[in-house]
Amino acid sequence: MSEKNMTTASGELLSRYLCTVEFDVDGGIIAIGASPFGDQRAGYVTGGRITGPRINGSVLPGGGNWSRAGRLGSDSSVGTFDARVVWQTEDGEMIYVTYSGRNVIPDDVRREFVDPAQPYVDPDRYYLRIAPVFETASEKYNWLNGVLAVGVGERTSFGVRHIIHEIR
């Protein structure tokens, strides 16, 4: 993109709160190990809850997150997400959700972040963001098929919570 196009772009990024999703990840993260492609891990989603003004329901067991970790400079770890889950709305509709994302966790926070005995780590001390997309055959929730969203995440005692916003 030329410098002229960057300075005259008129697309202000707006968002609207979509929902809060709490993912239960019983059993923690499975360390697969460091291959030539990075430190691979997997987390099995055992359930969860979805609450929002236009969508409520459950996260079905069986989804997961396949992540990679590495280093960002000398004092932080960085990770990627490759997640797939199925949501079931309170009225029985199914929604397939995939998302990628990033986390950056300073080394002094990582010790607390990975310790299951620490029920809370202040999310202002680390960066956890996702970009979910949705797919559904539901007529009622068909509008989700055209939505791109972003989420701000935080580690919890049961797994992770994402506050998701629809990009407009």
Rank of each mutant, 00 (worst) to 15 (best):
Y127W: 15
V114S: 03
P106R: 12
T98Y: 06
A137E: 11
A42D: 09
G48C: 11
G79P: 03
T89S: 13
G79A: 14
G57V: 14
A149L: 10
E93L: 01
G79R: 12
G57C: 03
W87I: 04
I55A: 07
R102V: 12
G146T: 05
N145W: 00
P116M: 09
P132C: 01
D108V: 07
I105F: 10
A69M: 05
P132G: 03
V114E: 11
E135F: 14
G48H: 10
T89I: 10
R111I: 12
G57A: 12
G73N: 12
Y96D: 04
G57M: 01
Q118S: 09
R110W: 09
S76W: 02
M94A: 07
V133K: 01
R155M: 09
V85A: 05
D124H: 01
G146R: 07
T98H: 01
R111A: 15
A131D: 06
T46A: 09
N145C: 08
W143G: 02
G151T: 08
G92L: 02
V152F: 13
G101D: 02
T51D: 14
G47K: 09
E112Q: 12
A117W: 00
G79D: 06
V152S: 08
G153I: 03
P132E: 04
A137G: 14
E112L: 05
G43L: 14
S67G: 15
G70Q: 07
V86R: 06
G73V: 13
G64S: 12
L60Q: 08
D115P: 03
V104S: 03
S74T: 13
Y120K: 06
T80K: 03
Q88T: 02
T46L: 05
V150G: 13
Y126N: 11
A69I: 08
V97G: 04
S58E: 09
S138M: 11
R54H: 14
S58C: 08
R49K: 15
G47I: 11
S74L: 12
G101V: 01
Y96H: 07
G52V: 10
R68F: 13
A131L: 14
P106T: 14
G101S: 05
Y99L: 11
D124K: 08
W143P: 01
G73D: 13
T51K: 11
S100Q: 03
T80H: 01
V86A: 08
R54L: 04
G48M: 05
I130R: 10
D82H: 02
K140M: 08
V133E: 01
V78C: 15
S58G: 06
T80C: 01
Q118F: 06
S74H: 07
S77I: 14
P116Q: 09
V133M: 00
M94T: 04
D82S: 00
V152K: 14
N103E: 14
D124E: 08
D122S: 02
D82R: 04
R111Q: 10
G101T: 00
N142V: 02
V109N: 08
